[in-house]
């Protein structure tokens, strides 16, 4: 009885979360423009997706932007974590408090306030992409910090001292001893930053150049517009991204559990 209820509840949750994606995935392989109407099998949507320059540019732009943002955030956030870790307790908690702001803040407020400062107050040109990159880094950098910090706290504090005693210079000790210890945190911070900026709508739409679109802003505009061809091509995009995520998650889970075994 208890077991039946447990299975029932989880199946219910999974159905709620996945049924829409699954239905859309099935319909992405038909020529139908509406869910519910039955049409034949077709790869038309996938063809449109890969042959429409506007769509391909938008996808490439989204990933390039996310990559640049994740890279900058990883460098800034890791430096911040290492520096804060070796600071006085008071300084460190002040830094941590500052970093909490973008984490707890609503994305609408973060995006709007960055837009007000850079574009309205300083009159910066949106078309330089600088406000956009800064805005997304504001969101992502503290998350990198939060992923790197536990690696530092879990590290043997005498490793660094030992390296110095054995003749390393401080910068050598930093690169050869501390860096290898925090790399797993940096990698997961990088991935968090990547998914955050791929997923973001609000910060992007308040700071982006008018002609540039990421997947999020493009999809929102497309649902308002009436271009059916583009709309159903996005079903194909959704299906492809879903498959990619499943593969990445399964792979990371496999390598992750192997690392825990060691």
């Amino acid at each position: 009885m208890k077991k039946t209820f447990h299975i029932f509840w989880i199946v219910l949750i999974l159905l709620f979360l996945y049924l829409p994606i699954m239905v859309l995935a099935v319909y992405s392989f038909t020529s139908s423009t509406m869910i519910g109407s039955i049409r034949g099998f077709s790869l038309h949507n996938y063809e449109t997706l890969f042959t429409t320059p506007e769509l391909m540019d938008m996808i490439r732009g989204t990933f390039l932007l996310a990559f640049v943002v994740a890279l900058i955030s990883t460098i800034l956030g890791s430096l911040g974590a290492v520096g804060a870790f070796y600071s006085k307790k008071k300084t460190r908690s002040a830094i941590e408090l500052l970093g909490q702001i973008p984490v707890v803040n609503a994305d609408v407020v973060t995006g709007f306030s960055v837009c007000i400062l850079l574009i309205v107050f300083f009159g910066m040109n949106k078309n330089t992409y600088i406000p956009l990159v800064i805005g997304l880094c504001v969101l992502c950098t503290p998350f990198v910090y939060l992923q790197v910090m536990p690696r530092l706290s879990g590290m043997d504090p005498y490793l660094y001292e030992a390296a110095l005693d054995l003749g390393c210079t401080p910068s050598q000790a930093m690169i050869r001893v501390i860096l290898p210890e925090i790399i797993p945190g940096m990698v997961s911070g990088f991935l968090t930053a990547l998914t955050l900026s791929l997923d973001d709508y609000f910060i992007t739409s308040y700071t982006k150049p008018a002609v540039f679109n990421t997947i999020s802003t493009y999809v929102v505009n497309a649902t308002k517009g009436a271009q059916t061809d583009v709309k159903t091509a996005l079903w194909a995009l959704s299906t492809l991204l879903f498959v990619v995520i499943v593969i990445v998650v399964v792979m990371m889970n496999l390598t992750g559990s192997r690392e825990e075994d060691r």
């Binding site: 999809v219 996005l234 959704s238 991204l241 995520i245 998650v249």
Partner: peptide, 10 residues
């Protein structure tokens, strides 16, 4: 980890 606008489209 899936883009929320694409999930909402579905």
């Amino acid at each position: 980890w899936i883009n929320f606008t694409l999930r909402l489209t579905a």
